[in-house]
């Protein structure tokens, strides 16, 4: 099937190279939205190989990208009005940074791809422009040794490519820096929201079941009276961990993500308390406090994976301290919940 972003072919040494459009259409936008919600992610790929933008000659620049369609799209969009080549590596449909971390956007694949497409027959120069975040997987000096091509690390964000070119292929400090802005964080929320759905359903199921306990075994009345509110509380805890934590990340007063999540869980709990929906007695209120903050804390801790400034050593340290606390909170919370049902 011919992809819609391919508008034609250009012939180099008798080989047809597809030309891609620099305009994104409605379908590209819809596709991007779906991917953000975790739909169709696996099929959102571009075939690895060489592509042309505009009408490039042998002197045109070569930009290297991943075969994750969002990476590819943001690159071609930012090459509007330029002539250039795009070399797409086979990163198994994963974006540049993730793929570089895993080594699929890596030295070996880049060298391979340069050889497969015969890049030295397509261009007359020896310059490759890689997104800076690809550096985690690519050793520039090895690529040079093996292929003769010089790797230039461009800006972190494709949006800076035009400025990078205008500045004479120089990435300034700002272009090299990874930020984790409000917008960056918000963009991650849908995917995390969908990703955690199994945790959500499992926690809802457990607390729904607990809500039915009474001194005389399971009681239908209890399910009716308490089940819905238990599910709602779990949902709010989930919301605290996955939505409130990322949004207020810089303002939650803790370094550990798990503690940040504890605070956003506490906010939700306080709202419940103020609206008199946290429970009927001290036992129940306390148990909900523990359960809500545990859920939120655990999910917030998982957000370390989406953040762009947490280190492996740091996360290990955080987990060593937080996980025992979370387990303690969860067991105490559930214990209180059961005790409360049996006593009252």
């Amino acid at each position: 099937m011919k992809s819609e972003y391919i508008t034609g072919n250009t012939s180099v040494n008798g080989e047809a190279i597809p030309v891609v459009s620099t305009e994104l259409n409605t379908k590209d936008f819809l596709g991007a939205v779906m991917v953000r919600w975790g739909i169709n992610r696996d099929r959102y790929r571009v075939n690895p190989g060489i592509y042309a933008v505009g009408s490039p000659g042998p002197g045109a620049e070569v930009f290297v990208s991943a075969n994750y369609k969002l990476s590819f799209d943001s690159l071609r969009k930012n090459l509007q009005g330029k002539n250039g080549w795009i070399l797409v590596l086979d990163t198994k449909g994963v974006n540049v940074w993730c793929a570089a971390g895993k080594g699929t956007f890596g030295t070996k694949e880049l060298i391979n791809r340069i050889n497969i497409v015969n890049l030295d027959k397509i261009v007359s120069h020896k310059r490759l422009i890689l997104p800076q975040l690809g550096a985690t997987g690519v050793a520039a000096f090895k690529v040079k040794e093996e292929t003769g091509f010089n790797v230039h690390y461009g800006p972190v964000r494709a949006a800076d490519i035009k400025k990078f070119i205008a500045d004479g292929y120089r990435a300034d400090k700002e272009m090299r820096k990874v930020n984790f802005s409000f917008i960056d964080r918000v963009k991650l929320i849908p995917n995390d929201f969908v990703y955690g759905k199994f945790y959500l359903l499992a926690a809802m199921a457990v607390l729904f079941l607990l809500s039915g306990i009474s001194a005389h075994g399971f009681s239908y009345r209890n399910f009716q009276d308490e089940g819905g509110s238990a599910i709602l509380k779990v949902f709010l805890a989930y919301f605290a961990g996955i939505v409130i934590t990322p949004i207020f990340l810089p303002y939650l007063p803790a370094r550990f993500f798990s503690f940040k999540g504890f605070y956003s869980g506490t906010i939700v709990f306080l709202i419940l308390l103020l609206t008199r929906s946290a429970g009927h007695n001290l036992f129940e209120i306390l148990s909900w406090f523990l359960i809500i903050t545990t859920i939120s804390s655990f999910l917030a801790m998982n957000f370390t994976g989406s953040s762009t400034y947490t280190s492996l050593s740091g996360v290990k340290k955080e987990m060593k301290i937080s996980i025992p606390l979370q387990i303690g909170f969860a067991f105490t919370g559930i214990g209180l919940q059961i005790a409360e049902k049996l006593i009252y």
Binding site: V138, F257, N302, T304
Partner: peptide, 25 residues
């Protein structure tokens, strides 16, 4: 953030870092 890009791209191996993904999951 221990991404390892510096160590990988240092030709004389002057940098060491225990790199990996800082991700609880």
């Amino acid at each position: 953030m221990e991404c390892g890009a510096c160590a990988l791209n240092c030709q004389v191996k002057a940098i060491t870092v225990n790199s990996g993904v800082g991700c609880a999951a």
